[in-house]
């Protein structure tokens, strides 16, 4: 029984390998005509909030550049910048704040100047149909409105504070969460009436939460910038640059806008 299983497994493996080899041969002969380089892998270190957009763009990029594989390393911007500074292999660094990108720039790890290609701003997340009729940041201070924000120590909390300052409002949140997902969760479960999150977070819930825009979301310090740059010493600097161009192309900006980003 066991040997038969093993034999089947080996036959299967051989078949898959054979297929893979044929596939490689096919693509080689195809790209040979275009005199393109053989299989290459582009490693992109990107902020966690970019996950769904980048994955979609990654597939499109691979289709447009046969023989290229895009590998993503998603994580917190701070950690990603640290990894690049420590010499982790990456061709592109895309963070969710200028401050974290600056860490890599100052360590001489970014070629040239990074570009800010998108921004994300705060929105008031409320239950669908906005039962409490919230239209402004001031409305969050009304009696009977339970609001939740991020703790000031984390980026989304710092942004919330900047917006409060611009609106001249002092919120008395019921809870200061560790991250945006925590805030979103409170609103989604109905335990809070309103929470400050990013536009892209509201979009990601696909209608489970509604977003209310407010003018102070564009105040200094409240906007989250998304810079991108080619990592110094990259073996695929040309490919890295074409990824950046792709993200900034019509196709790229459309995907970013769909997710709720404002593109530049």
């Amino acid at each position: 029984m066991r040997t038969r299983f093993r034999a089947a497994l080996m036959a299967g493996t051989a078949a898959v390998l054979g297929l893979a080899l044929t596939a490689c041969g096919g693509s080689d002969s195809g790209s040979g005509a275009q005199a393109q380089a053989p299989a290459r892998t582009l490693t992109v270190s990107a902020a966690a909030s970019l996950t769904s957009v980048y994955q979609q763009l990654g597939t499109e990029f691979q289709n447009a550049n046969p023989g290229t594989t895009v590998k993503f390393n998603f994580g917190g911007s701070d950690a990603l910048a640290q990894q690049v500074v420590q010499g982790a292999p990456a061709d592109v660094l895309a963070t969710a704040s200028s401050k974290t990108m600056q860490t890599a720039v100052q360590a001489g790890k970014i070629q040239g100047e990074p570009v800010v290609y998108a921004t994300n701003s705060l929105q008031i997340a409320v239950a669908p149909n906005n039962p409490k009729g919230i239209t402004s940041l001031q409305d969050l201070t009304k009696p009977g409105v339970v609001s939740v924000v991020c703790a000031p120590a984390v980026p989304c909390g710092a942004a919330a504070q900047a917006a409060e300052k611009a609106a001249n409002v002092i919120l008395t949140p019921a809870s200061e969460e560790q991250d945006v997902k925590g805030v979103l969760n409170r609103v989604q479960t109905g335990n809070a009436d309103a929470g400050l999150v990013y536009v892209t977070d509201v979009k990601s819930t696909a209608g489970k939460v509604a977003g209310v825009s407010f003018p102070q979301a564009s105040a200094q310090g409240a906007i989250q910038s998304y810079p991108i740059g080619v990592v110094t010493g990259s073996q695929n600097a040309d490919l890295a640059q074409s990824w950046i161009n792709f993200v900034r192309s019509q196709q790229g900006t459309a995907a970013l806008q769909q997710a709720g980003f404002v593109t530049k």
Binding site: A153, V154, P173, S175, E176, E177, Q178
Partner: peptide, 20 residues
């Protein structure tokens, strides 16, 4: 939840501090 003086106990405080 997590709010200073109301719900932010020592372990929650440590978790938040570890981020900043």
């Amino acid at each position: 939840g997590s709010l200073e003086g109301t719900t932010r106990t020592l372990p929650l405080f440590i978790y938040l501090e570890s981020e900043s």
